[in-house]
């Protein structure tokens, strides 16, 4: 039986005292999710035509790019292939401004609804479609939660990480088991693993800005806890030497006064003592080189047993 199979995805204890580049006390990674709100089967023409999507692609993205430029922050744009194909000009502009374009599914679909072979085909197709549009293949793959999902961590199938390794991806964008990058082990015996970048729903704007969707309650616009979480975790990242990873959506955070939330956290992160900012791939490559799996992934021998009358 593999090591703590179906319970753990990484080693027993995190790495402490990360020595970030440039002597920085912590890291800042910003992910921009370019998926419109959609269902578990992914984006349909209806969502591509929605007003929110139109706003995000034509008004939100330029506002975000300006904000990032003013704060000299690089971000990673997690982009479903169908979004990249619909708005190639925006994708090329994002890349030209020094940001990273990463894959976010073919259409931000839940891979648990796909057979393994179909999931593999879609990963290959998505990789190739990005290469055509942006000129380079994506190095990272995201599977972020949607605002209507029952759970807020995103979805991977039992095959996703293994297939991503096979397809040459260098990181998975929304790992939930640490607040720094960590190795997601798919086979403990061979130490086959993919780097996972940290994600936490409490740092994702979609759970605070008109959440749940209008019509599902009142008091849905809650910028205060989002701001407090970002700023509070930035302070904590400095204290504990971790990576603050925030996730924003152009159709949400760029609108009206909300942009001030992002301005605030970027301004604080880039004041002394400055967080080290990189794109997700920049952070992933640095981490993999500074803390390679060969020496940093410490898989303990399993003492995990099967017990009659217990879940295995």
């Amino acid at each position: 039986m593999p090591w703590k199979d179906r319970y753990t995805t990484s080693d027993e204890r995190t790495l402490d005292r990360i020595a970030w580049p440039e002597g920085a006390p912590c890291a800042l990674v910003v992910t921009v999710d370019l998926s419109p709100a959609c269902g578990p089967d992914g984006i349909t023409p209806k969502e591509l035509e929605a007003e929110d999507t139109e706003y995000g692609m034509h008004v939100g993205i330029p506002r975000l790019l300006d904000t990032f430029a003013r704060h000299r922050v690089s971000a990673t744009f997690a982009t479903p292939a169908i979004v990249a194909e619909t708005w190639p000009t925006q994708i090329r502009e994002i890349a030209a401004r020094g940001h990273e374009v990463a894959a976010h599914g073919e259409r931000h679909e839940d891979p648990n609804r796909l057979e393994r072979a179909e999931e593999q085909r879609r990963i290959a197709r998505t990789t190739e479609r990005f290469a055509r549009i942006a000129g380079v293949r994506p190095h990272g793959w995201y599977s972020l939660p949607r605002p209507g999902d029952r759970y807020a961590g995103g979805q991977v199938s039992p095959h996703t990480i293994d297939l991503l390794i096979g397809a040459g991806y260098e990181y998975f964008g929304n790992g939930c088991a640490d607040d720094i990058p960590y190795y997601w082990v798919t086979d403990a015996a061979t130490r086959r693993a993919l780097l996972a970048m940290p994600y936490y729903p409490h740092f994702d704007d979609q759970f605070f800005l008109m959440f749940p969707a209008p019509g599902k309650g009142s008091g849905l616009e809650r910028p205060a806890p989002l701001r407090a979480n970002w700023i509070g975790e930035l302070d904590a990242a400095r204290t504990f030497g971790r990576c603050l990873a925030i996730t924003v959506h152009p159709h949400l955070v760029a609108w009206g006064g909300r942009l001030g939330l992002l301005e605030d956290v970027l301004a604080q992160a880039t004041s002394e003592p400055r967080a080290w900012n990189a794109t997700a791939i920049g952070c992933a490559r640095w981490f993999t080189s500074a803390y390679p799996a060969a020496t940093s992934l410490r898989l303990e021998p399993s003492i995990w047993k099967d017990h009659a009358g217990s879940l295995s």
């Binding site: 753990t8 995805t9 759970y151 961590g153 995103g154 991977v156 039992p158 939930c176 088991a177």
Partner: peptide, 9 residues
Amino acid sequence: PALELAQGE
């Protein structure tokens, strides 16, 4: 699902 378990992890 898996990424909820990961949050527990």
